[in-house]
Simulated scan of single mutants.
Amino acid sequence: MTTYTANNQRIQFFINCSTKYSAKEIKEAKIQRLKQLEDDLGRQNILLNELFPSKQYLVLEQIIYWINKNNGICKFGTDKLIQSIHDNIDVSVSVRTVRNAIKALKATNQFIVTRLQSNRCNNGKYVIVDMKHANFKEILKEVFLLSEEKIAHQFAHQKTEKNDDKPLVQQQSTDINQSSNLTNFKTSNINNNIYKAVQQEIEEDALKNNTREYVSKFAVNDYQLKFYDLIDMMPFPIQIMDKKSVLALRIGSDATAKTFVKAKDLIMHMALRIKEGYTYDNVVAAFTKGLHNAVQYKSVKTLIAPKSKAVPVFAHYNWLKS
């Protein structure tokens, strides 16, 4: 994958010399770009609020706003982003939430995510470019100093917009109207490439860093940490213990108490089978499939017998007694 470096002065020059829009226009453009992203993901049967759950969506909103404010590019530090969200809507987000949101943003393949170049090293600031923005090609030339040939070679799949004379909001609205008529694919979320890209990168690291700290870094649900603690305290076979961090993350960011109980029962069952001599080709895959089936399975409801009716007093009267 190509690595890009962006110089702060070039970015600032591009931003300063770009067309300025009102706050209302920028807000409208942000809404339309989020809708476009939602539609694009929807055609792959991905829900936007699943890829950017909870506070990660707030991070996405802020980044999209800055991108449209600066005509296709933005640069920021994590602290600045966190402070902006807090100032605007009085909500606190963590560094981990920002990191996970940017990882998901990168996985959509609609944005270039890189770091700001400095004389000594990168200074921790992110640089993000919208590949679907009308100014994308211009940004590649002026900020990243790419030639026409390099742009054509590296972004042959990317159709850059050419309606430079249209207002920002109008350009994005046209894109949305064109994309909204496409048919959604009926593919499974489990096999989706974007989910796999995010998940695979995290889980490969998790196998190397099989610790609670690593799970805490990426977990967005308390039940994921609780499940790690459960496995960690149990005398499970080595096949399970070696993958406890991945298993903990696999119960999902939307895990509930019900999910946790089913995951606990499943991992106990798998541990017993391994001790009895059964061999799983892939413990993580078997657990994931088993948990999915367990959550989908509807338990049989217990029938409650109707209350018996009160027996009339005359039914107990001894008619033989005079």
Rank of each mutant, 00 (worst) to 15 (best):
H133M: 01
S188V: 05
A107K: 06
E148P: 00
K125I: 00
N163A: 15
G124T: 10
I102M: 01
V129H: 03
L168C: 07
K103C: 05
N191G: 11
T174I: 15
F111W: 05
K132G: 07
V129R: 02
S94Q: 11
K162F: 09
T114K: 06
A152M: 04
H157C: 04
I112F: 07
N135M: 12
T97V: 07
I194C: 03
I194T: 15
G124W: 10
E148M: 02
T108M: 05
I194Y: 04
E148K: 13
I176K: 09
R120K: 12
K132C: 14
S173A: 15
L140F: 04
K159Y: 08
T114M: 06
K162D: 15
D164C: 03
A156M: 03
N191Y: 14
V169L: 13
V127F: 02
F155C: 01
N123Y: 00
N100V: 05
D130I: 05
A152H: 11
S180M: 15
S188F: 04
S147R: 02
T97Y: 01
K137P: 00
D175E: 15
V95R: 15
Q170L: 11
N100D: 14
K162H: 12
Y195H: 12
Q110Y: 06
Y195V: 05
N88G: 00
I194L: 11
D87F: 08
N88C: 04
N191E: 13
R120W: 06
K186M: 14
F144T: 01
T160Q: 09
N184Y: 13
A152L: 08
N163D: 15
H157F: 08
K150T: 05
H157T: 13
N184F: 14
C121P: 01
V169I: 06
L182V: 12
